[in-house]
């Protein structure tokens, strides 16, 4: 499914009851990790992670700060090299995915301040940048996050939520097969955050990529993900599938129960309230 099929951002809040799970997950790439380790000096941040994320799944990784969840994401994005073990995208461990197949959204928008909104989206095009086709794709992506009228603006004049939407358009413009999120909504205010969550859920449904989201917001994880991996001290402490019907309401009983279960797990191994 292409970006054209995306609902406009303005309409997303109404959440038209169409597909609630991706109709086609074949676009996604599975992610497999075997004995993945990472040490910084004597500090073993990741102590042998094994997991498999099927194509098209939305998996959330939660944990306390310093548990290694961001390190895991940096390994997957090739921003750091693993100290041991291996991981791969797709079914075979020797095939490298296309460069634009794995995209990321950071906690900060990380837009180039000296490039217009449209040029920032075009950063995500890779080799297609500068072609008429690329321009059309970038405009489409911008339309899908509801910011096509701001195409010529500098990022400095946008609000925090708008900047993150531009960053989302940049990540989506190459039709990625895996989209990684590193606490993408952590810096937004509560209301913007909720509408961004709906937007993220919607693009995942429409595009069918594999989503891997690092977050410390347990409610966000439960609202969006098919599955929650809890990482504690560099190991997977809990692998929980979230089979609640969608759309899920933040604050509904089921979501709250699951959230409570995860929070109990997170606090189980620590002296109560240690750094909470």
């Amino acid at each position: 499914m292409t970006v054209h099929a995306l609902k406009r951002f303005d309409n997303v809040t109404e959440l038209a009851p169409q597909a609630l799970v991706p109709a086609d997950t074949s676009r996604g790439l599975s992610i497999t990790a075997q004995g993945l380790e990472k040490s910084f000096g004597d500090n073993r941040v990741l102590r042998g992670l094994d997991f498999h994320v099927p194509a098209g799944q939305f998996v959330a990784i939660v944990g306390r700060s310093g548990c290694g969840k961001s390190t895991l994401l940096r390994l997957l994005l090739n921003l750091d090299q693993a100290s041991g073990g291996q991981f791969w995208f797709g079914e075979r461990n020797d095939a490298k995915p296309d460069k634009s197949a794995v995209r990321v959204m950071f906690q900060e928008p990380r837009l180039l301040p000296w490039a217009s909104v449209l040029s920032n989206v075009e950063v995500g095009l890779g080799d297609k940048r500068g072609t008429p086709e690329g321009r059309a794709l970038a405009l489409d992506a911008l339309r899908n996050v509801g910011l096509e009228t701001r195409r010529d603006d500098w990022p400095a004049v946008l609000s925090g939520g708008q900047k993150q939407r531009v960053a989302l358009a940049r990540a989506l413009v190459s039709n990625p097969r895996v989209l990684a999120f590193d606490e993408p909504l952590g810096a937004l205010d509560a209301l913007t955050r909720i509408s961004m969550q709906k937007l993220l859920g919607q693009v995942w449904v429409d595009q069918g990529f594999t989503a891997i989201m690092v977050t410390h917001d347990v409610a966000e994880a439960v609202t969006l993900a098919d599955r929650v991996l809890i990482i504690e001290e560099g190991e997977i402490a809990m692998d929980l599938s979230v089979d609640l019907p969608r759309p899920r309401e933040r604050g509904s009983v089921e979501v709250a129960q699951l959230e409570g279960r995860i929070l109990r797990e997170l606090f189980r191994n620590s002296k109560a309230g240690e750094d909470a």
Binding site: L79, K99, R110, L112, A115, V123, R170
Partner: peptide, 21 residues
């Protein structure tokens, strides 16, 4: 440095990183 990292994850070459970041 965050912009440089962004450029790298988005596949910018060294030349592109220099001229655009």
């Amino acid at each position: 440095a965050q912009l440089v990292e962004m450029g790298q994850t988005y596949g910018m070459t060294r030349g592109a990183l220099f001229w655009r970041v």
